[in-house]
Amino acid sequence: MAIMNVNPTRMQLTKLKKQLATAVRGHKMLKDKRDELMRRFIDLVQENKKLRDKVEKELAQCNSHFVNASAVMSKEALDASLMSPKQQVGVNVSSKNVMSVDIPQITTSTRTSDSGDIFPYGFAFTSFELDDAVMSLNELLPDLIRLAEIEKSCELMSAEIEKTRRRVNSLEHVMIPRYQETIKYISMKLEENDRSSRTRLMKVKDMLLDKEHNYSGKYS
């Protein structure tokens, strides 16, 4: 791992030590965030899978109802019966913050007070297959909306988890080792300087004493 391009000074060392402490703390927190997000994501995605299987199965049934209806009614009559809907579904979206990810919370409202009030046609000229089809589709609607809510949440969360994972990895495998190595390099350099100045001093002292008392002449 390459060390950073810094001057080996004491000031730089304290600065780097502080930065390392921050990085370690940040790494720990991000790791916790990633783990918690992952736990929630796994729960959500499993629910999503179940709901999707259910919705797809029921939607396939609804479609077959519609196919039956169009088999017994003329296309024009069928289109005409569905042309002017009675009901209007609106949704209110608020957001909920889960580990810094905003996920949608969807509530529905219908135009008429009775949400079962759906048949936009009289029963006299339409087949009962059409009633079945419209009714089963209406029953499926809450699940469809819940599916949208969960699937959007999964989409947002998976993107956030990926981001957090990258951050955790870059801190763990790049930033923190780099700080550690640089700190090691600076402290070694400083120690080395220390030692060299100490030997220099000793040498100078020897020379001075030698000059003053002529030690080398006495003992050699």
Partner: peptide, 22 residues
């Protein structure tokens, strides 16, 4: 603010959704 729900698809697949208010 209330928003709507849109369904895009081939006309055969989606005409039922119109009836239930989408």
């Amino acid at each position: 603010m209330a928003k709507g729900i849109a369904v895009i698809g081939d006309s055969e697949s989606i005409k039922g959704f119109g009836a239930i208010g989408l």
